[in-house]
Amino acid sequence: MAMNGVNAADAVRDTIYRATMYLDAQKWEDWLGLCDESFHYAIKSFSPEINYDMIYLQGSRKEMLTMMRLLPKHNTDHSPLSRHTSVYTVDVAPDGKTASAVSSFVVYQNMLDGVNAHIDAGESRLFLVGKYIDKLTIEDGKARFIAREVRLENRRLDKGSHWPI
């Protein structure tokens, strides 16, 4: 049964905030558990330098899962990330079955490695600024991601990251 608009919007917000907490905790499978089988993930940014709307990373749910499972084989910066997300708008479709949402986020890098861990560890630095543009499906009172576009303002990304944002 379709929910009323207020409840549906609450379900969407709940899913977005849960995703933020799972991503911060690096619980990749729990994060993907909030995503529909048809989920598509993309990190994008517009570059005025080359006048091009770029895709920095993209993948299906399955591709993201494979990538995350291979992480232990890769050398990765150890500094955990903290995302601060604010859901700005939620627009629920008239039939109450889908919704789109725009959230703002900043991502801090909580230095563990840094450049010199002795000096840098324990410091938090601003890493990324952007917006989440999400599409969700709503079923049985729960919202699940169909698509997440991470729109970065940054093009200076320094060491970069192996993790979804």
Binding site: I43, I55, Y56, L57, Q58, H74, N75, T76, D77, D113, L157, D158, K159, G160, S161, H162, W163, P164, I165
Partner: peptide, 17 residues
């Protein structure tokens, strides 16, 4: 390009570290 060499790719992050 980006799966290996992008800022969120597999190799570039390792090279920069």
């Amino acid at each position: 390009h980006n799966s290996i060499w992008g800022p969120f790719g597999r190799n570039l992050h390792e090279d920069l570290i």
